[in-house]
């Protein structure tokens, strides 16, 4: 029998800091006369955060059971050593990158993740606008870490560390950080790009803690001062109702599945990139970017007349 050390829950420890930093950001925005917060938008984000905590309470036990079950078949026994904490930092962050990229590129996963992007504001309260449905299934992507040999409690601890790290990057109050930091770490600038709907920025910068993964896998885009970020989603929500925020894409999927004419269409509606359709009424990120690029290139083409 292995005795596991009792690891703290980083998110629970960080909640007072979250609150203080949001209050500080409100004060800074006020001082700079750049309104960053809107009342109903903030209330909706906070309600989503509270709901996410509640879902986490219910789903958490099941996640532990699943991680422990898989851990029985571990390839190596990594245990709790000083280097385990260093290794899990990178391994979990790479897992997060994969999860996050999938969450933008497959509609089933997007349906759970979209609510995090549904605010047209970008501030620290946006970080708290978390999913109500993703916690029910997204943990399957972390099971390989348990299979490799990371202790389940360490995996859960590191997921918390990642969430806490990603809180402070949801702000416009911080511009660019020193070059070495921007090169390695995910920063407010990099994550503003991720939340933007400008065609240049759509579905880029999936990183959690280290921006290295985006640089490595070709999904990195720099924030351009000449193209200020417009936040939100391609079809912005006209509601602050948490139920609409949490479930709107699931409702859209259900409607599409009901109207689908074949199993191929059903699969596409469920798993293909968001925006994929058969009647031209919606566009995927790739289509939006291609159209934008064509429009940008067209005026520069020499006349053939």
């Amino acid at each position: 029998m292995t005795l596991e050390p009792r690891l703290a829950d980083p998110v629970q420890l960080a909640i007072p800091a979250f609150i203080l930093l949001v209050l500080l950001e409100i004060a800074v925005a006020r001082a700079r006369r750049r309104p960053a917060y809107e009342l109903r938008d903030t209330a909706a984000s906070l309600a989503m955060g509270l709901g996410n905590l509640a879902v986490g309470l219910v789903a958490g036990a099941g996640v532990y059971v699943a991680l422990n079950f898989v851990h029985q078949f571990r390839l190596v026994d990594i245990g709790y050593r000083w280097w385990s904490f260093a290794l899990i930092l990178f391994a979990e962050d790479l897992t997060y990158y994969g999860f996050h990229r999938l969450s933008h590129r497959s509609r089933f996963w997007w349906a759970a993740h979209v609510n995090h992007h549904s605010s047209q504001h970008y501030n620290l309260s946006t970080a708290l606008r978390q999913t109500w449905t993703g916690g029910l299934f997204d943990w399957v992507l972390w099971l390989p870490l348990a299979l490799v040999g990371f202790p389940p409690a360490l995996i859960v601890f590191e997921k918390g560390v990642s969430l806490v790290y990603q809180f402070w990057i949801h702000t416009e109050a911080i511009g660019r950080l020193p070059r070495w930091f921007e090169a390695v770490m995910n920063t407010p600038s990099h994550h503003r790009v991720h939340h933007a709907t400008n065609p240049r920025y759509l579905d880029r910068n999936y990183a959690g803690i280290f921006i290295l993964w985006d640089r490595l896998f070709g999904s990195f885009v720099e924030e351009e001062p000449g193209d200020p970020c417009r936040y939100g989603i391609v079809h912005n929500l006209g509601s602050f109702n948490p139920l609409r925020i949490a479930f709107h894409e699931w409702v859209a999927i259900a409607r599409d599945l009901a109207a689908a004419r074949s199993w191929r269409e059903r699969l596409v509606f469920l798993l293909a990139p968001p925006g994929r359709c058969f009647d031209g009424s919606r566009r995927t990120t790739d289509e939006i970017r291609a159209q934008w690029l064509n429009a940008a290139i067209a005026p520069a083409r020499p006349s053939t007349g």
């Binding site: 909640i15 979250f18 609150i19 949001v22 409100i26 004060a27 925005a29 006020r30 209330a43 509270l50």
Partner: peptide, 17 residues
């Protein structure tokens, strides 16, 4: 969290949110 939410919403309202 509940006290924090109340404080944040009050701050947003008081700053013209």
């Amino acid at each position: 969290p509940l006290v924090g939410i109340a404080l944040i919403l009050a701050a947003v309202w008081l700053t013209g949110g």
